[in-house]
Design a protein around this nucleic acid. Structure first.
Lengths: 195, 195
DNA sequence: GTCTATAGCGCGATAGAC
DNA sequence: GTCTATCGCGCTATAGAC
C-alpha cells in the first residue's frame, strides 16, 4: 500500500479550513473546493450534503485537534508562564501554517456567526468557553508556582488573554504579519510575568 | 422645512454599516439595503455604482467619524489613563449602538479583507495604523502625568491594546455581550494603571 | 432620483447514469 | 464514489422609461 493519500473527505476538510481561515465562510464555495481537490462539485456534496454539515464537521475536527494540542502543552512539566507561552504559540502556528494570512477558524466564524446554523454556533461558543477555562487553569498554575503575577481576577485575565490573541491574529494579518503577532505575544507575557 | 429626513445616500450608508458590522460584507446584499431603506435595488445603484464604491465611501465616513470622536477624547484635560478609558469606551459604544452584536467595521473588514478591492484595503490598514499611533500618544501622556505605568515598549503596548479591543469585541458578541466587553476594558486599564 | 425589467453569472443542491 | 446535467434562486450590475 505504501504511503496512502489522505482520503477525499479529509482533503475536502483541509481545503475548506484553509479557505475559510483565509477568506471567510461566505467567500468559500463548493466550486472552490471542487477545483482545489480535483473532483466535481457533485462529488463534494456526496461527502457533505450541505454547507452547514461541512462547517459542523470542520468545527468538530478543529476543536478536537486544538484540544489535543493544548493537552500536550498542559501536560508538560513547565512552569505556568511557560505553558502559557507555548499555548500562545499555537496561535502563531495558526497564522503561519499553510500559506499566510490565516486567522483562527473560530475567530473567523464568530465574525460570520450570523451565517451559521445551529450545531456550528454551539461549537464556536464551546471553543471560546473551553479555551477560557484552560487559560484560567494555566494562570492559576503560574500564580501558584510563582512564575505569574496577575492584577485583577483570574477569569477576567483569562478572557482578556483569549480576546487579545484572537484580536492579535486579526490585526497581524493587516499590519506586520507573524512578526507582529510574535511581538504581541511577547508583550502579553511580559504583562503577566512576575518581576 | 422642519426636521429634514436624512438624505437617501446617508440612509443607505447607515444601513450598510449596520448590516456589515452585524453580518459581514459578503452577507449583505443590495437587496437587503433596498428593503431596509425602502427604495428599489436599481436606486441604490444610482447612489453607489458598485459594492466596492459603497464600501470605500463607508470606510471614509467611518474613519472620519472615529477620528473626530478620538479628537474629542484627546483634547480633554483628563489624565492619560482617563483618556484611554474614554477611548476604550468608544468600542463599547460600537457594540451597543443600534441593535446589538456589532463589531468594529474595520475589525469585520480585516477578516473579510480577501473580498475587498484596492481603495478599501488601504483604508482599513489606515484605520489600524492611525489608531495605533493615537493610542501611543495617550500612553505617553499617561506615563508623563504619572497615571500609567507600562511594561515593555510604548508602541508594543499600543498595538497590543488595539488588538485586545478588536478581539474583545469579537469574543463579547459570542459570550457575555456588552457586560463582558466592559469587564475586558476594565481589566485592560487595571494592567496599565500605575499602582 | 426613482422606477420596471432583465442580462449574466455563481451559488447550493438534486437526479440519475456509470 | 465519481460523474454529467440541470433546477431554482439570489446576486451585482445595466438599460431605459418616467
Amino acid at each position: 500500500m505504501g504511503v496512502a493519500q489522505a482520503d477525499t473527505k479529509t482533503r475536502i476538510l483541509d481545503t475548506a479550513q484553509e479557505l475559510i481561515q483565509r477568506r471567510g465562510l461566505n467567500a468559500m464555495s463548493f466550486q472552490d473546493l471542487s477545483d482545489a481537490v480535483g473532483i466535481r462539485k457533485a462529488s463534494v456534496h456526496h461527502h457533505f450534503a450541505t454547507k452547514n454539515d461541512m462547517v459542523a464537521s470542520l468545527l468538530v475536527r478543529y476543536l478536537e485537534n486544538f484540544d489535543s494540542a493544548v493537552d500536550r502543552v498542559m501536560s508538560s512539566r513547565a512552569s505556568g508562564l511557560n505553558k502559557l507561552e507555548r499555548y500562545c504559540n499555537l496561535f502563531l502556528e495558526t497564522l503561519q501554517s499553510g500559506g499566510q494570512d490565516k486567522v483562527c477558524l473560530c475567530g473567523m466564524l464568530i465574525v460570520e456567526m450570523a451565517s451559521l446554523d445551529d450545531p456550528s454556533v454551539v461549537l464556536v461558543r464551546q471553543f471560546v468557553r473551553s479555551n477560557g477555562r484552560r487559560i484560567e487553569a494555566m494562570l492559576r498554575e503560574g500564580v501558584e508556582d510563582g512564575s505569574i503575577a496577575i492584577r485583577g481576577s483570574v477569569p477576567g485575565t483569562a478572557r482578556l488573554l483569549l480576546a487579545a490573541l484572537e484580536g492579535s491574529l486579526l490585526v497581524a494579518r493587516c499590519e506586520g504579519g507573524p512578526k507582529q503577532l510574535a511581538e504581541n505575544i511577547a508583550q502579553l507575557l511580559t504583562l503577566l510575568k512576575k518581576h
